[in-house]
């Protein structure tokens, strides 16, 4: 199985550590990952903001770039859902482009979903898996004990994965995973909504942070780069000490594949 990493432009700019973690976790599970260098942006910003023709050009590009692979994995729940749910609607039924993006949609997965449904990994056994790469560390003796919360990207709803990340991390032994009250409510990011309605977006983000604080968690796992940037940015502005990371990083750290920064 040839597996490609779909990096997403946002993660390349804002969260390269999440991408590194994705590669390390996949390798830990015996999956060698390739990274098509021509990939750029999936077109979500255009698609969500009334420019479907622009989005279609990028969707077509995506389908060509990832054509040689059997599976495409990304740490971003939101970009994943665009490929899965929205691409087809950009092209006429029966067209070649439509077939191409449908083929891409059928093989694109968010990381945790890929591990759980495509590889069929029982999270409880993750730790025992042996690494395919000699250079990575041996399975860890210690795991993070920092209390953490998990906030799922709303777009995971569309691919029926909303609420699946926390149970997976819990079962994988990612430390002290605490339930986040009202997890189902949007964090307020919403792409350009965050700048079009900044007050509403901020109020929702602050509510999310208040829920996190109520659990005593010092780390928040957010399954989308945009949500993570929004919540981390709010916390930073308010001098709230909160580490915001991706599910991939939480897994990589707990498996000893990555060091927890001091």
């Amino acid at each position: 199985m040839r597996v490609a990493l779909f990096t997403t432009c946002l993660a390349e700019a804002l969260a390269p550590r999440a991408l590194k973690a994705t590669v390390l976790v996949l390798e830990h599970c015996g999956v060698a990952v390739e990274m098509p260098t021509a990939q750029t942006c999936c077109g979500q910003p255009m698609l969500s903001n009334g420019l479907p023709a622009d989005a279609a050009r990028l969707a077509r590009r995506m389908s060509e770039i990832f054509a040689p692979y059997d599976a495409v994995v990304t740490p971003s729940g939101s970009c994943c859902s665009v490929v899965r749910e929205k691409y087809a609607g950009l092209f006429a039924e029966g067209s070649r482009d439509r077939a191409a993006v449908e083929a891409l949609a059928a093989k694109t997965f968010e990381l945790v979903e890929f591990l759980e449904t495509k590889l069929g990994i029982d999270p409880a056994t993750l730790r025992a898996k042996t690494c395919s790469r000699a250079s990575t560390a041996t399975p860890p003796a210690t795991t993070t004990t920092a209390p953490l919360n998990c906030h799922d990207a709303c777009h995971l709803r569309g691919i029926h994965r909303h609420g699946c990340t926390a149970p997976f991390l819990k079962a994988a032994g990612c430390g002290d995973v605490r339930d986040l009250p009202d997890m189902a409510q949007c964090c307020g990011f919403g792409g350009m909504f965050s700048t079009q309605f900044p007050e509403v977006s901020t109020a929702l983000g602050e509510e999310k942070l208040a829920h996190v604080a109520s659990t005593g968690a010092s780390t928040l796992v957010a399954s989308d780069t945009g949500c993570a940037a929004h919540l981390a940015g709010l916390a930073h502005r308010k001098n709230v000490a909160l580490r915001v990371i991706s599910p991939a990083e939480a897994l990589a750290e707990s498996l000893g594949l990555m060091e927890i920064p001091a």
């Binding site: 390269p16 990274m35 930073h236």
Partner: peptide
């Protein structure tokens, strides 16, 4: 600007993912 009205923007400045890979 709408973003930084209430939020800071955190941008990773270390090694890029592509260089690492």
């Amino acid at each position: 600007a709408g973003w930084t009205q209430s939020r800071d923007l955190g941008i990773a400045t270390g090694e890029s993912f592509r260089d690492w890979f």
